[in-house]
Amino acid sequence: MLELKELTKHFGEVKAVDRVSFRVERGEVFGLLGENGAGKTTTLRLLATMLKPTSGTAVVAGFDMVKEPEKVRKHIGILFGGESGLYDRLTAAENIEYFGKLNNMDKDELKRRVQELTEIFGMGEYIHRKTGKFSKGMKQKVAFARSIVHNPDIMLFDEPTSGLDVSAIRDVHDFIMDCKKAGKTIILSSHTMSEVEKLCDKIGIIHKGQLADYGTIPQLTAKYKESSLEEVFIKLVGEKI
């Protein structure tokens, strides 16, 4: 479970995130939909405790992110879009192990988990090879495995499909659905309408740091008397431009 309470982040005069509140239940996929610069990444960085809020807070897996950031980090996994962000000179296994160790996993537990993840993502052939010469798809699988090595309850996906080709996007979507099936609480930030429609149980539309509204797609379309999420988005965002 994850709950944001008036979460606010200012960078000088700029209100990057402005009193954002919502709740995501266990096993739910919450889509944060917004244009570039709307505050999606800042919200996820706040939830990942990489940034400290100016005011407000969030309760992540029962822990207050301001008071107990390290305990919060124990329960979250994060996957960023674009480049997979791997260490090229380390093997796939070493990349995954590094994050497992930094998440306080013990040696035996980590060994078992790497084996398990290798099987889940079909990385057997290249798990002990350096990632520098991997294809984008191979790197992506390692990045998936790395993000869930410590078996987090909550997954944060920050525009995970940005810059990817069709098959890689499909892999990311499958991974998100697998996480959902595993009962993880998920927040997915995206500016792609079809992606959030396909994957999310609830959607929050964020604009200029403020959460314009949130709910399920039927709830939103009914509320704003529009035929599609896109129309709702344009209505909410367009009204505020």
């Binding site: 990942a48 990489m50 480049e83 962000g85 260490y87 994050f99 930094l102 993000s147």
Partner: peptide, 13 residues
């Protein structure tokens, strides 16, 4: 390379 942000999300302070 994009490895820094994931590093900051681990339990290591």
């Amino acid at each position: 390379r994009g490895t820094f942000e994931p590093l900051l999300t681990t339990q290591a302070n």
